[in-house]
């Protein structure tokens, strides 16, 4: 059973198509890496899934529901959480307020505090800094905050755009380990866009390589990781 199916998707921001017949899927609870060079359409794919794209043809469905006329607010309601590139944290709000914003759909009940505790469990540093303004956090902490904020939605699918961007290798390593734990414990499926292909392939179960808006290679992450020739041809390492 796939949580997400994208079938022959084409579209872009204006008349220029960015995605050209894109097809891939994400199994329930799985982690899928979306790789490829700059400008291949990876970020655009994530935007398409939350309603930020003009679709010209093709189908997207999430848990059996058609995403044809999806809007950002609606995506959240369906259970798709987007961690955008550059993180999109609310700099003027405190860490805890950021998380509460993320948990808007949970309402006022105990579900909210429970979720807060779950986030603080994965990232204890955020608990320490919960009264601080998000703008004063380090890059790594902001990324943790962005992921936690997405987690507050209790999403079935989390879209992660370049989580390693601008972070020190050591911090990135730890962050990805935590993402793995979150994926297992919360059964959250993840669509991971990442420049750091080797890191992404370690975390993901499946991977797709995009070029010019369509998939040029897809398969088990381990197969791609272990095949030096494929790696060199498509991922350049």
């Amino acid at each position: 059973m796939n949580v997400l199916e994208v079938d022959d998707l084409s579209g872009g921001y204006s008349a220029t198509p960015v995605l050209r017949g894109l097809t891939f899927s994400i199994p329930e609870g799985g982690v899928v890496a979306l790789l490829g060079p700059n400008g291949a359409g990876k970020t655009t794919t994530l935007r398409a899934l939350t309603g930020g794209l003009k679709r010209t043809s093709g189908r997207m469905s999430f848990g059996g529901e058609d995403l044809a006329s999806i809007r950002p607010e609606g995506a959240a309601r369906l259970g798709i959480a987007h961690v955008p590139e550059g993180r999109g944290t609310l700099a003027d709000l405190t860490v805890e307020e950021n998380l509460r914003v993320g948990g808007y759909l949970l309402g006022r009940g105990t579900a909210l505090t429970e979720k807060l505790d779950v986030c603080f469990g994965y990232f204890p540093i955020l608990h320490e800094r919960r009264k601080q303004k998000a703008g004063h956090l380090s890059g790594g902490e902001q990324q943790m905050l962005a992921i936690s904020r997405a987690l507050m939605l209790q999403p079935r699918l989390m879209l992660l755009d370049e989580p390693s961007l601008g972070l020190a290798p050591k911090i990135t390593q730890r962050l990805f380990e935590t993402l793995g734990v979150i994926n297992k414990e919360q059964e959250t499926a993840m669509l991971l866009v990442e420049q750091n292909a080797s890191l992404a392939l370690d975390l993901a179960s499946r991977a797709f390589v995009l070029e010019s808006g369509s998939v040029v290679l897809g398969g088990d992450a381990s197969d791609i990781r272990d095949d030096e020739e494929l790696r060199r041809a498509y991922l350049g390492y």
């Binding site: 872009g12 220029t16 060079p37 400008g39 359409g41 010019s212 808006g213």
Partner: peptide, 10 residues
């Protein structure tokens, strides 16, 4: 648009 992919790299 600014977001159009730069095809030169690929």
């Amino acid at each position: 648009p600014a977001a159009t992919p730069t095809t030169s790299i690929s």
